[in-house]
Each structure stands twice: as C-alpha cells, then as structure tokens.
C-alpha cells in the first residue's frame, strides 16, 4: 500500500495573485491521481483555482533539533523589521 500509494503534500492557491499555501496531504499512486484527489479532497468548497502536489519525500525539511541555532539568532534583531520610520501621509498600499 505505501509503495503503491505514497504520500503527497497539497498546495492550493486561493485566487490569482496569492501564493500557493500548504493545505494538507493525501495518498495517491501518481501525479495525475494525486491532482485529482487533491481537487476532490481540498477544493470541494471553492477554496482555490490552482493546485500543486509534490511527493512528501521530495521535501527537504529543517532539522527540529537545530531549531535553536537556526532561528534564535534572529530573535533579538528587531532592527531587521522595517518599523523605525514613519510613513508619510498620502502613501497608500505600503
């Protein structure tokens, strides 16, 4: 079963201009069936207009044991957030 039906991660784009977002996973035999299953499982309520599927085993993930060395160094660098200037009046969409 697992060999014939590997796990796929599903990404759906809610509408044009937005990014594909991870929505879940499913089992399927190949790309085409994975796309169809994703359509049936994750877009039944009009959630999107585009689907990506990718074999879970093809995703490289960061090591949770290295979370501290990966992410803590950025925790105290507030100056990296662009919040130290005021936005002039009349500027929209910033």
């Amino acid at each position: 079963m697992t060999d014939l039906m590997p796990i796929w991660e599903v990404f759906v784009r809610p509408r044009n201009g937005l990014a594909h977002k991870h929505v879940g996973s499913l089992h399927a035999g190949d790309e085409e069936l994975a796309l169809q299953a994703a359509r049936d499982v994750y877009t039944r309520r009009n959630e999107g207009n585009s689907i990506w599927v990718v074999r879970s085993e093809h995703i490289a993930a960061s090591d949770p044991d290295r979370a501290a060395e990966n992410f803590q160094p950025s925790a105290d660098k507030v100056y990296r957030h662009p919040t130290f200037y005021s936005v002039p009046d009349g500027v929209e969409n910033l």
Binding site: L26, H27, A37, D40, V41, R44
Partner: peptide, 11 residues
C-alpha cells in the same frame, strides 16, 4: 477503497 476516493465518488 481509500479515503481520497471516498470523497471523490460522492462528489
């Protein structure tokens, strides 16, 4: 036979 198809057929 599988959950994915269990949603597809009622669709």
């Amino acid at each position: 036979p599988i959950l994915e198809e269990d949603l597809a057929m009622p669709n």
